[in-house]
């Protein structure tokens, strides 16, 4: 094991998959000479050359459609869209082509495509550069949508995504690239599945379900709660389509209480979808209404003070948990 950043873990995964399989190539805006907007692909152009590390024009619709075409033609593209916000320009190809073709054409075409894109707020990038749009894509049958939060998971899941025969939307977060975590040594092969969440902290009093960057906020909240005698179980979904419902139900059976913490907006989102699934499959095990911590229902403001108010934080999670864990339970 060593400790490396999320960015380096991603790059290692891309590089190892490119070395493993000649069909794997990467394309995107400024990924070659520039090294990627978030420096994820730095050095890969020098190592693999123009054939396999392709700078593209600034044209999300065609590069996404071309990546789909390349996948149909037998390649394994990893497409980097500069941010999830720009993916809206490519959303026709993602939703009307990538998600539909396998089913609509009777199971014939396969689209083994990975689209990487970071989303999220917290860096004062304003309303058009701070969105969490994963929930929109998770609504659509035919896609896999994953949101790895740690260096270990991001490396293992990218490898799985490249090898997956389906289109995978690989949602990163702009504030995760510099976080560090334990990752097996280079050359030690491992993958992380694209349909399993993980208990990142075991606990008995309450289940806090989260994903992407909010995992780290939630882990801090769990530490605070522990100081007050509340033992929280933290589940990282890792993938939001499909949802690993068995893992959630098992946890709810144990704790009987649920907080869902996400950075995105409240309505019709991943959190509300999860809550509905838990009510559907584990209603009888719930001792309290599910609490939902989420981003403010506004376009993201620029001002640092306002942005801080718009982002869900540790205190909000602690407060939500305490609201449904009775004091008498907290010290058992």
């Amino acid at each position: 094991m060593r400790t490396i950043t999320y960015r380096d873990a991603l790059r290692e995964a891309i590089r190892e998959e490119m070395l493993r399989d000649e069909r794997v190539f990467i394309l995107g805006e400024d990924i070659a000479g520039y090294g990627g907007t978030y420096a994820v692909s730095k050095g890969l152009f020098e190592e693999f050359g123009e054939k396999r590390v392709r700078d593209t024009p600034l044209a999300e619709e065609v590069i996404t459609g071309a990546a789909i075409g390349a996948a149909l033609g037998g390649l394994r593209p990893i497409l980097e869209l500069m941010t999830v916000n720009f993916s809206l320009l490519a959303s026709d190809q993602i939703i009307n082509s990538a998600a539909k073709f396998h089913y609509m054409f009777g199971g014939q075409p396969q689209i083994p495509l990975v689209i990487r894109m970071p989303g999220g707020g917290g860096a004062q990038r304003g309303a058009q550069h701070s969105q969490m749009l994963e929930t929109m894509y998770a609504h659509v049958p035919g896609l896999k949508v994953v949101t790895p939060a740690t260096p270990y998971d991001v490396k293992g899941m990218l490898k799985s995504a490249v090898r997956d025969p389906n289109p995978v939307l690989f949602i990163e977060h702009e504030l995760l690239y510099n976080i560090k975590g334990d990752v097996p040594d280079e050359g030690v092969e491992y993958t992380v599945p694209l349909d399993r969440g993980e208990v990142k902290r075991a606990g008995q009093h309450i289940t806090i379900i989260t994903f992407s960057r909010m995992l780290h906020v939630t882990m801090q909240a769990a530490e605070d709660l522990a100081k007050e005698g509340i033992d929280a179980e933290v589940i990282d979904l890792r993938c939001i389509r499909p949802i690993d419902i068995d893992l959630l139900v098992d946890s709810v059976k144990k704790t009987n209480r649920v907080v869902i913490a996400e950075e995105g907006w409240k309505y019709y989102g991943t959190g509300q979808g999860l809550a509905a699934l838990i009510y559907e499959f584990a209603f009888d095990y719930l001792d309290a209404p599910i609490q939902h911590v989420h981003g403010a229902d506004v376009p993201m403001p620029y001002s640092k003070s306002l942005e801080r108010l718009a982002m869900p934080n540790k205190d909000a999670i602690v407060k939500a948990a305490k609201a449904i864990v009775p004091a008498v339970l907290a010290h058992t």
């Binding site: 190539f25 065609v62 459609g65 071309a66 075409g69 390349a70 996948a71 390649l75 026709d92 082509s97």
Partner: peptide, 17 residues
């Protein structure tokens, strides 16, 4: 027009291979 980008990608795959 959805097929135009995909056609470019298929042609790219042929060129690549």
């Amino acid at each position: 027009a959805a097929q135009l980008p995909m056609a470019a990608g298929l042609a790219f795959a042929a060129q690549y291979q």
